[in-house]
Design a binder for these strands. Structure first.
Lengths: 98, 98
DNA sequence: TGTGTTTATTATAATATTCATATATTATGA
DNA sequence: TCATAATATATGAATATTATAATAAACACA
């Protein structure tokens, strides 16, 4: 009855945590928690190349952390679940006490 | 006022999340959430080599996720903060819904 | 169709992580 | 001190992740 923490599930949880565990991706999530943004907005706000932003967004999308919609040439990304911010907030609380 | 999510802090949060993001380390945390354990207990329960367990414990200790005490030849490890389990639980909730 | 704008994909070099093996350290008790 | 038990550390090969540069694809509009 500890299947909640079966090796398979922990394996999956680990893969998903790894996806969160990147400073740029955390910044993206933080920005998207305010409102949806186009790729080029993120590019400007974060000062990172288009290719890099796009690749990171792809990883986040693959784990269903973000979702996207296209509007003409732009693609807007948004956070899929506001609780991802909670997760980051709890992480900060636990690790960044000084 | 968004210093809570300054790049520096997110950088640190990312490093700490990376430390959590390993299936074996999640299993260790899960076991330690019940009660403290000696290295050899973890070794037996998880079926992993002594060296491997010790290396993973060292990473967890470095990030202050676990703490340890020595009793004769044995070293007992414990979870430093029960909220680490909350973090994992929330992760599971967010990512392992099916 | 042709051009400009935005986003996605691919390839690859640099870096980081993981795992296994061998060795070292720490403590106990004869 | 010596032998044994428990744990820690060092090293290197295998693997995974990341960043950069180059190219491709999707869309709008003249």
């Amino acid at each position: 009855m500890n299947s909640k923490y079966s090796p398979e599930r922990l394996e999956k949880a680990a893969r998903c945590l790894r996806t969160l565990a990147h400073p740029l991706r955390l910044q993206i999530i933080n920005l998207l928690s305010q409102r949806e943004r186009a790729v080029q907005e993120l590019e400007k706000e974060l000062g990172v190349s288009q290719s890099s932003i796009s690749q990171h967004l792809n990883l986040l999308k693959d784990k269903e952390i973000v979702a996207s919609r296209r509007a003409a040439q732009q693609v807007f990304y948004r956070l899929n679940d506001p609780r991802f911010l909670e997760l980051i907030s709890l992480t900060r609380e636990l690790f960044c006490k000084e």
